[in-house]
C-alpha cells in the first residue's frame, strides 16, 4: 500500500504566530541556538493503489493547503 505524506507549511513571507510562539517556548526550555521556527502540518495518506500524481497534486494545492498563505510538499513512501 503506497503511502503519501503531504507537508503543508506557511509561505515564507506569511506571519506565523504559532511558529514565533513555539520558538520562544523552545528557548525557554533551554534549547540553545533556536532560530526561526515555522509550524505547519503533516498529512499522511494511505492509498490502495498508486494515486494519480496530477490529481494528488491538485488536491494538495487546492484542498490540503490554502494557496494564498501556504506551500506544500508531496513525499511518496514506498
Amino acid at each position: 500500500m503506497p503511502k503519501v505524506i503531504v507537508t503543508v507549511m506557511p509561505k515564507p513571507s506569511v506571519l506565523d504566530p504559532q511558529g514565533v510562539a513555539t520558538a520562544k517556548l523552545m528557548k525557554q526550555s533551554g534549547l540553545a541556538g533556536v532560530g526561526r521556527v515555522r509550524v505547519g502540518k503533516s498529512i499522511e495518506i494511505e492509498f490502495e493503489s498508486t494515486p494519480d500524481a496530477a490529481k494528488l497534486e491538485g488536491v494538495a494545492r487546492d484542498l490540503l493547503s490554502n494557496p494564498v498563505i501556504e506551500d506544500f510538499r508531496i513525499e511518496t513512501l514506498p
Binding site: 504566530p17 504559532q18 514565533v20 510562539a21 513555539t22 517556548l25 525557554q28 526550555s29 509550524v39
Partner: peptide, 14 residues
C-alpha cells in the same frame, strides 16, 4: 494565555 499557540495552555508552564 500566550495566544494558545502550539497547544492550549502549554505556554503557561513557563
Amino acid at each position: 494565555s500566550y495566544g494558545d499557540y502550539l497547544r492550549c495552555g502549554v505556554s503557561a508552564r513557563f
